[in-house]
Design a protein around this nucleic acid. Structure first.
Lengths: 327, 327
DNA sequence: CTGAAAGCGCTTACAG
DNA sequence: CTGAAAGCGCTTACAG
């Protein structure tokens, strides 16, 4: 059996109250009993039961993290940073891969509530889920709008879309197409598309966007891309809404013997560490993943600590153009 | 305030005991009171507090997952599969990114114990950490040897190393070098190296292995690779112990104007989804990540359910050669 | 400086 | 079929 506070107390010849006090370094305790208790704890290899503590304190130091999937390098890296920062602050992360499925999201939301998490970070697609679940549980969204009471953190998607599109134009592209997630998803990511359209219109060019499902449904993605190449044979520029899509585009172009960057220029989005290593040649818009993680947690902590209204409703972090050899 | 069982009981006009019974579907209860209680729960938007439940049941359905970092696509995908399977079985995942740092691992191990996890899955480097922490807490290791009481799950590393090396030989390589993690790390992954050496020796060739740190310390990795190119200018084959290293090798070769696959052939290791999309041309040894996850959880569950001795000490899952255009 | 008592929100024998 | 009581392992007023 695991030792409990009572066992330590007995061994040290004190009351459980006293053990608890040295555990929490609270109230006055003589150095002598302190030492005694410490010795007893070591001897028994005692570790406090955080469940019992949390039950009493109504504070678990547990954070729920809901994302589409850590298989995607963007989310894998985001998860790393979030967990890492949380750990440094004494928080623990309960991981949830929702695959953007609303049924899973709902299950996860309930699970997190039952586990009394102190707060939730959501980076998943579907909105609405949290409207009713949220019984003033601190939440912060990453790159997703849920409601106007839930703060959103993300990178400056409009600037990113603009940067990408203008870059393609500056490189001489005349026929640019964009691949993005379906419109019904109300993510700030759609601003990339808006920026793309705005810039092209300003240059009197017709913006064409193909919608593509984002979870790694590789096959479906390929089809859309093939269709695009078929319908717009004179395409000479592609702005992909993430690096994986850019990779598929590049590969498809290679198969068709289309030279990159001479006949076709491609800009991706995300600029993950993995992407930079695996595709060092890719021109892409880099998101500050670590900063997104840091900011989201800062805002969540403020909410948890009851500092409402302090956090900005929306935070847009700066993006960078990483110029490679695909443009 | 969150409603508790007592509130539901009052509203439904029954005792807490009865509410608990309908919650757990336990013992005899009339359909009528069952309905009453259900109605009261809905009305109050009641969710049971799993902390309190777990405290009593001594079962949290929490699994600790310790890995180097989800930033690495192999671990990002492994994490996804593990969490996904856990969720389908009613388990929740507490994520820990140790970065292979022994101090972090120790902290995480203690944290997991305090949180009363039902079991731990470790895919991290350092051994020894769990020798004393482990007070018969169910543990399963992924590709790491800890002690002979902790089951290990991984892919067939020897077969993988053999497959990779023989493939390079069959493609006519005469001077093959291998990049792997430092030897002191006692991971089954070292079997890839052993296989490499065995095969080359059998063919009367001298095996050369360069040691490379695995966490994404990109810069350090690059240096080792540059050094290798400098020292062995006639290298015509590389077996890299993961796809990220393979990517750096390929990039370095390109910079030096070394044509792949004509002058240099490269085989990677892992074959992640991300890798397959970002580097579709790479020849690599694919690990069955989903199977590794599934097997690890199966074994852990057996341990949790007290079926000791049932689980094999070591499980080696089959690997596949994915032939691309780099060989 | 230290301890006995009550309580965090739940569950399960034990009665009835 | 239903309820009162005790307890999971901890903590915190309240006394002393």
């Amino acid at each position: 059996m695991k030792p409990k506070i009572e066992d330590v107390a007995k061994l040290a010849g004190v009351s459980p109250t006293t053990v608890s006090r040295v555990l929490n370094n609270r109230g006055y305790i003589s150095q002598k009993t302190k030492d005694n208790v410490q010795k007893a704890m070591n001897e028994l290899n005692y570790f406090p039961n955080d469940l019992a503590r949390s039950l009493f304190n109504k504070r678990t130091y547990l954070i729920g993290l809901i994302l589409p999937t850590t298989s995607n390098p963007f989310f894998g890296e985001l998860t790393f940073h979030i967990e890492n920062i949380c750990a440094s602050l004494g928080y623990k992360v309960l991981l949830c891969n929702s695959l953007n499925r609303i049924d899973k999201e709902e299950q996860y939301a309930e699970m997190l509530m039952r586990n009394q998490v102190d707060g939730i970070i959501v980076g998943t697609h579907n909105q609405g889920t949290f409207h009713y679940h949220k019984q003033n549980l601190p939440i912060v969204a990453i790159d997703r709008y849920f409601s106007n009471t839930i703060p959103v953190v993300g990178s400056d998607n409009y600037a990113g879309g603009k940067l990408a599109t203008e870059h393609l134009l500056s490189k001489g592209c005349k026929k640019i197409i964009h691949f993005n997630a379906p419109l019904q998803i109300e993510a700030p990511g759609q601003l990339r598309r808006t920026a793309f359209e705005d810039v092209l219109k300003k240059h009197h060019m017709e913006p064409v966007t193909y919608e593509i499902e984002t979870p790694l449904g590789h096959e479906g993605q390929k089809e859309v891309i093939q269709k695009a190449f078929g319908e717009i044979p004179d395409v000479d520029g592609v702005f992909a809404s993430n690096d994986l899509i850019a990779a598929v585009v590049i590969n498809e172009a290679k198969k068709r013997g289309i030279d990159i960057p001479n006949r076709l220029k491609v800009v991706g989005y995300d600029g993950t560490e993995t992407g930079k290593i695996m595709m060092p040649q890719l021109t892409t818009i880099q998101q500050p993943i670590d900063l997104i993680a840091k900011t989201a947690i800062e805002i969540l902590r403020k909410e948890i600590d009851g500092e409402f209204g302090t956090a900005p409703y929306e935070t847009q972090l700066p993006v960078t153009l990483l110029e490679g050899k695909t443009t």
